[in-house]
């Protein structure tokens, strides 16, 4: 795939053009100093110097709550789908988060497509910004999701000393480069070399958190993890569900109806497999009544070979958000460590 160079003084010009072409979602700093992926309206709003965003990209493709159907229950029942479609460019988002979207693609695509997710996904373009320095909770190197990627993005941007190196990863990314050729020049070999140097240096900046994914995958796949591991994790976990909501690849949802006027709407909401009521049936029978059973099911779905096979890869991208969000010690890093030790 092609690589281009965008001089520093032309970055804002290109971002300005993107803003005129589509809704642009980019890292944006709020008053507290935290960074969220949010719609931006001017190039100056993009927080190029951020490390990680508080939330992943999931909510832009799978909103926390969305209306899927509208129905009227008057004389004759009428049901209509509610689909949202608009062009969106995700700019300067992290590679772990782009990888998270790729996992969601496998879950919501496939033989039976989820039309709500796919309508948004088809009109989304992902321009990632490679990380030069890991944040303290990061372990994307363990998750095979960064800090630099070889593919999976539409474009990957790397901030070099004099400007951006732009690597193209898809037809969509190429079309975008083609449309703005006047701002770009083909990348020079020394610019590519500079990127490789930065990538190498970035890998040396990881902190104390890691994830023993290979060990966990083997033991989960073969059901070799002793029950005590899950019981111990259950002692720590407070079942807040925070890890699932912050996770770029957790995508469980539930569906409810809400009455409105002489009809109503059917909505879907994020759900969490850690909640006691998650699998409970109307009869009261709960196949995962024990907290430890729910933790085992969650990590099996995340990391087992069986599910990795189905989704094309395991479902941890090493963004570290569960580490930040966990009120206890039951996040991915802690769990894989516990599984490894048995």
């Amino acid at each position: 795939m092609n690589a281009y160079f965008l001089p520093r003084d032309r970055v804002d010009e290109l971002v300005g053009r993107l803003l005129r072409a589509a809704e642009v979602i980019a890292p944006k700093r709020v008053e507290t100093g935290d960074v969220f992926y949010s719609p931006v309206s001017s190039p100056g709003e993009v927080a190029w110097d951020y490390k990680t965003a508080v939330e992943p990209l999931k909510r832009f493709l799978l909103p926390q709550q969305e209306t899927v159907l509208r129905f009227s229950t008057g004389e004759k029942l009428r049901v209509e789908p509610v689909l949202e479609e608009k062009d969106r460019i995700f700019l300067a988002v992290r590679n772990c988060d782009v990888t998270g979207v790729n996992v969601l693609d496998a879950m919501f695509g496939g033989e039976i497509e989820d039309p709500y997710y796919m309508a948004r996904r088809r009109r989304a373009t992902f321009i990632s910004l490679a990380c030069l320095e890991a944040d303290e909770q990061c372990f994307c190197v363990c998750g095979d999701a960064g800090p630099f990627l070889k593919n999976g993005y539409d474009q990957q941007w790397t901030p070099l000393a004099e400007g951006m190196l732009i690597e193209v990863g898809s037809d969509k990314g190429q079309a975008l480069a083609d449309a703005h050729q006047d701002l770009l020049s083909p990348a020079e070999p020394d610019q590519v070399a500079e990127k490789l140097q930065l990538a190498k240096r970035a890998e040396e900046t990881f902190g104390e958190f890691r994830s023993y994914i290979a060990a966990a995958m083997r033991r989960l796949t073969l059901a070799e993890t002793p029950d005590e591991v899950w019981e111990r994790l259950a002692d720590h976990c407070v079942e807040c569900g925070g890890c699932t909501f912050l996770c770029p690849t957790c995508s469980c949802f539930t569906v409810t109806d809400r009455l409105e006027g002489d009809g109503g709407v059917r909505e879907r909401h994020w759900d969490a497999c850690l909640y006691n009521c998650y699998a409970r049936e109307a009869s009261g029978h709960n196949p995962r009544a024990e907290h430890s059973q729910r933790l085992r099911a969650r990590f099996f779905h995340k990391l087992s070979h069986q599910w990795a096979q189905r989704n094309g890869r395991h479902a941890c991208v090493g963004c570290g958000r569960c580490v930040v969000g966990c009120q206890a010690w039951a996040h991915m890093s802690a769990a894989t460590e516990a599984i490894r030790r048995g």
Partner: peptide
């Protein structure tokens, strides 16, 4: 099971 979506998306 508590099948919400019936098409392998909701995971319930």
């Amino acid at each position: 099971r508590h099948m919400r979506c019936g098409i392998g998306k909701c995971n319930h």
